[in-house]
Design a binder for these strands. Structure first.
Lengths: 264, 264
DNA sequence: TAGTGGTCTAGACCACTTC
DNA sequence: AAGTGGTCTAGACCACTAA
């Protein structure tokens, strides 16, 4: 038999899904359910905690437990890297992105810090550097209004970016066109990319930084950016609040028997 | 100030990351820490629950709390759809996949059920069908040994698969070459695909079916498969245990200013 | 059967929001 | 100040594993 808190949680979840409670509604107060004989305070609380972990509600001290608004996922396709955006246009890439998604732009939605660090193992591997080599790390925290949505840390080889705006530790995007534009101006035109992604539970630090409700997972994205000649010019690691993004990729079904051209 | 259980969890997490406990080791028993003055049983238990939600340990009743083995992620690239595997070879695609990843094959690692159902809204949209149209649903539960790793449900239009092996509800893969081979034989050669993925907390049902530790997220994958003429021949939804998979995609940086060919 | 983690209670107290 | 969710305790009991 399922625990009492699980049964209560399931019952409430069912009612939410059925529409008895709609987003924004308050669930009964914990003490009310205790009064109603659903169990002790700890038991009812456990049920509420489960609902929060499942993403159905958010609890606030002093306020109550509210059915969560499901914000539509922002769909990230490879079109977000369109060269036209950062090479020709006036807009900084991430602003263009906002424009395309119909969301308004606000100042200081992105904070960044730049520093010279010892490359973590993954970064060294991606760049083909020996362990412990120094790289520039450009860390951003991106927000949607007040709400942080993801972090993105780019790693560059010093010889690629030394002396450019990229290593100027001024808050805000790296000038017109963003990082790819700076690389382009420095003679490194990006050509192709590899993205690898996976999901995991958030660490306590990430949960705090991204203001995640307990139990909300994150998606970690590893992006490797190459020039046409295959040189890695950027390796970036992003940590995204899972409830805000979906990724989309289009591709041809490969056929190794037919053409042997394949990029490495 | 952080709650007592959080401080204890952080301290233990630190010790795990530092290597004081290595994968397979047992953490101190809850009652030992209670004895040691770390708090009441409920408090220590809360700390252990947090560590489990963060994926660091797994607790088992009657056994103890053990530091989790980090199994390497299985990396899923688009090469897994290589036509050579399912068109020319003798191997069923998913077996080829296993061979490639160096894992042994066991019988009955995949169970499937086929049924004619009303298309859920997403499915109808993907296939361009009116709401409520009937489609074939082919649901599989895929296991790695005893451990379920993901579910995968494919939806087909009846006129594409009626009379083929795909709608024969026999357990196991759909004969030589799997589903794509059947479609190929029926005159629908797959040509390109779209994959969309996002992560979320597991529902209680999924947690049970996939035997997920509490707090482990899932990745939901939506795969749309097209023929060269753009007909959708399969729409599939997968639900994956997040800790087991990573997805990888290679692509060219698009340039809308240069060539206007783009597949929608 | 002994020992483990998990559930549950009753009640005290704390942190926070709202008025 | 009143009322909310969150933490914590002390202790009973349950469900499960392993010898």
């Amino acid at each position: 038999m399922a625990p009492k808190w699980r049964e209560l949680a399931d019952r409430l979840a069912e009612e939410i899904r059925r529409g008895d409670y709609t987003p924004g509604d308050r669930l009964p107060h914990i003490r009310e359910l205790v009064e109603a004989g659903e169990g002790s305070k700890a038991t009812v609380h456990a049920a509420y905690r489960a609902l929060e972990a499942e993403g159905l509600v958010t609890s606030t001290r002093g306020h109550g437990t509210v059915v969560r608004q499901q914000v539509p996922l922002k769909r990230l396709g490879i079109a977000r890297y369109d060269k036209a955006k950062w090479r020709d246009g006036d807009e900084v890439a991430f602003i263009a992105d906002r424009v395309a998604s119909g969301r308004s732009y606000r100042r200081n939605e992105q904070t960044q810090t730049v520093s010279l660090v010892e490359a973590p193992p993954e970064v060294a591997t991606a760049h083909g550097l020996p362990a412990g080599a120094e790289v520039y790390a450009r860390a951003r925290l991106v927000k949607e209004g007040d709400q942080p949505t993801h972090t993105l840390t780019s790693y560059y080889r010093p010889e690629h970016v030394e002396g450019t705006r990229l290593v100027d530790p001024t808050p805000g995007p790296a000038g017109r066109g963003g990082g790819f534009r700076v690389l382009y101006d420095a003679g490194y035109e990006i050509d192709h990319m590899k993205e690898a992604l996976f999901a995991r539970a958030a660490t306590p630090d990430e949960a705090k930084l991204l203001q995640l409700p307990p139990g909300e997972p994150v998606v970690e994205l590893h992006r490797t950016t190459y020039t046409a000649s295959g040189t890695v010019v950027e390796f970036a690691i992003g940590v995204h609040a899972a409830s805000r993004f979906a990724w989309e990729y289009d591709f041809k079904v490969p056929d190794s028997a037919e053409n042997k051209e394949g990029r490495e």
